[in-house]
Each structure stands twice: as structure tokens, then as C-alpha cells.
Design a protein around this nucleic acid. Structure first.
Lengths: 192, 192
DNA sequence: ACAAAATGAATGAACGTTCATTTTTTTATC
DNA sequence: GATAAAAAAATGAACGTTCATTCATTTTGT
């Protein structure tokens, strides 16, 4: 019945366990033995699916990044309104972060540590192409600031990661009103 | 001649070494022995200045956070222009991050990992009071969006940390023009 | 000569990884 | 189908390494 290949069940459990443990106490406090235990497999089994701990982390990162970008561009199709297109993608991203909190927290932790291979990071970045294309189009049409995409990212996507972290620490709940305000602020910072 | 008490020299060296090592490869790859070596002292000496590794990390964090806030409010005094006041603080922050790259990178790594005690984090936050006061004043005067300070922080200060990380990875140099653009984007996102 | 500071080898705990063994699944044969 | 042989997957104890921390000893400063 299920479409999940047999061997993939344990692999998926390991991925989930890694995300949970790294979120709760960081990379350095997620020993292989605990990951295995949480996933319900024995320590040695990890090495049937991953070459090493580094490989495990990299693969988890890429998998989560991929899920993120799939969500970011769900139901997205270019219209002739740059702002409408941007809004669609931005809310997709916000929805992902609010729905898949664990995955989003894991990503935000990865983005600021040297624990991810540069190669994996580069690969993760390629997924954002459609957003970069949209920004370029907006810049050609004169509706988006003519600045580096890194600046655009810093003021639209990156703040959401911060807000999610604050919510998880109990400081600032991300109510729908706050999410809407965040969108307005994002758009105001990049529009011309 | 120097105002530095004798014993503080090695302590300061240890703090610097910790920052450098944690920046280069993360918390988990900064063993006490290497910190000691880089600081030019022996491993045991660390424990004359710090109770444990956790204590070392916490103290370094607080010291850097303190240096950060001192810079943030250097030469700052309230005027009757909220925007001018904000601009002053924002550029102070940007200058600190550009001048004290190592310290800024260390902070951005601390802000997204669970490696800092919640207590230390709270104490680090208190330093930002003048900025929070300014925002409150701006909100009362109707020139700053009436939203949570976490939102204001997410769209003004936090993006700079991202940009610095990108610069350090060689993706996006923070030229003066880019810094000015970043300021404009920050202000546009929070002004009414 | 004394006290404070610094040393670095020693210690034990914890970690990532391996591998001889056991368990489970698949394949082959009737 | 049932059964046996073969292959694959899983196990967890054991290994070697690395780490934070300690402490008997030495060095430095007064």
C-alpha cells in the first residue's frame, strides 16, 4: 500500500531524530548514540544509511532545504504583478516556517554555523532560483530596489527566521497579524 | 604604564582565542587544549580564569555583547528627530560589525545556537534598552510602526548579521554603498 | 623564602566508528 | 506453499580517539 520503500523508513526516522536533537541542544550535543536511540535503531545501523556524522548532517540539511524550497514555490506561477508574485512566495515561506517549525529551526541553525559543508550550502542555494528571477524581473521593471539579491534576502526572508526563533523561545508569538505586518515590512524594504 | 592588571592579559588572550576558534569551526571544534594553545597558555591555566568551558563561553558572550552595545550607543544622544536618532544607532551598529568582524561573527553564531545559557542571553538583551526606548518614542509620535520590538529588530539589526556572514563567505562585499542601501531598507521597513 | 601563577601529564568519561555476530528478508527449489 | 539456502539488514559490545578537567610539580614575582 505504502509508497515508502522499506529501507527508507529507518533512514527517515534517523533524519527526524537528527533534526529534533540538533534543535534541542545543538550539533555538539547530538551524539550518534542518542540519534540512534531516538530513531529507534541501533548505533551501528546509522552507518548503513550515512557514511559519517558529517554526511548525516549534510544530507539532513539538503533534504530540509529541498522541502523548504518546494513549499516556497508551491502553486507559484508568474503573473504580471511583481508584488503579487513576491507576496505569494513570501507567504509560502512564512507558512512553511510556521507549519514545519522543526525543519525551519534546523535550517536557521545551519545557516549560521560552520557545520555545513560549503558544497552542500551552495547546492541548497540553487533551489531559490525562481525567487532570484522574480527579483531580477522586478528590478528591470523598476519596482524593486536595484541591489544585490543578498540584500533583498536579508530584508525579506532572513527576518522570518529570527521571528520564528523568538517565538520558539516564548518571546513573540507569530500571530496572523504579526505575520501580515512582517510581510508589509519586507515589501516596504525592497520596493522602490 | 598600561592600565591592564597583570592577570588580565592571559584572560583577554583566552577570550580572543575562543572567539577565533569558535568562528572558524564552531563550538564543537574549539577544544580547550586548542584555545589554550592559541592563547599561548597551558590548558590548566584556563581554569584559573574560568570555571568550565560553559562558563568560558558565557563570559565571552557577555563581554562581546557588552562591547557591541557600547559601540551601538557611542556618541548617542536623543534629539527630536526619531529618524536621526535611529540612523545614528544603526550606523553605530553597522560600524561595529564591520570593524569588529570577529566579535560580530561570534555573536551571530551565539544568537542561533542553544550553546548560550538562557540567563546570559537575557542579560545580553538588557543592553539594548536605549534602542527599545527610541522605538517606543517613535511609535508614540507615529513615525514608527506600532509593532513588537522583535519585529523592528528583525528588520533592522538582524539583517546586518546576515550580510556580514555573506561578506565573510565571499559572496557579497559590504561596500559603503551597500551599507547605505541597507540602512534605507531598514528604515523603510519600520517607518510609517 | 614565600605565595601566587602556571604548567602539562594523567584521568576518566564520552564520542564516532567498526565488526563479529544475530536476526530478518529474499531467493531458489521442490 | 513449504523449506532451505543465501543475502541483506540490524545489532551492540568493543576500540581507539578526543575531550574537559584535575593536580602534583615547577616557575615566576615579591
Amino acid at each position: 500500500m505504502s509508497t515508502t520503500p522499506k529501507g527508507e523508513v529507518k533512514r527517515a526516522a534517523l533524519v527526524r531524530a537528527t533534526i529534533t536533537l540538533v534543535n534541542n541542544s545543538g550539533f555538539h550535543a547530538a551524539p550518534m548514540a542518542r540519534i540512534a536511540k531516538l530513531a529507534g535503531v541501533s548505533a551501528g545501523t546509522i552507518y548503513r544509511y550515512f557514511e559519517s556524522k558529517q554526511d548525516l548532517i549534510n544530507q539532513v540539511y539538503l533534504e530540509v532545504k529541498s522541502a523548504f524550497s518546494v513549499s516556497a514555490f508551491r502553486d507559484y506561477e508568474e503573473t504580471d504583478s511583481v508584488e503579487a508574485d513576491f507576496r505569494k512566495i513570501w507567504y509560502n515561506i512564512a507558512d512553511f516556517k510556521l507549519r514545519e517549525v522543526e525543519q525551519a529551526l534546523f535550517l536557521s541553525q545551519c545557516d549560521n554555523t560552520p557545520m555545513i559543508d560549503e558544497a552542500s550550502r551552495q547546492e541548497g542555494l540553487r533551489h531559490l532560483k525562481p525567487l532570484l528571477d522574480l527579483w531580477e524581473r522586478g528590478q528591470e521593471l523598476g519596482s524593486i530596489r536595484p541591489v544585490s539579491p543578498y540584500l533583498l534576502y536579508a530584508y525579506t526572508v532572513y527576518p522570518v527566521a529570527f521571528l520564528l526563533n523568538m517565538q520558539e523561545r516564548g518571546y513573540c508569538e507569530l500571530t496572523p497579524a504579526r505575520v501580515d505586518a512582517a510581510y508589509e515590512m519586507a515589501w516596504n524594504s525592497i520596493k522602490i
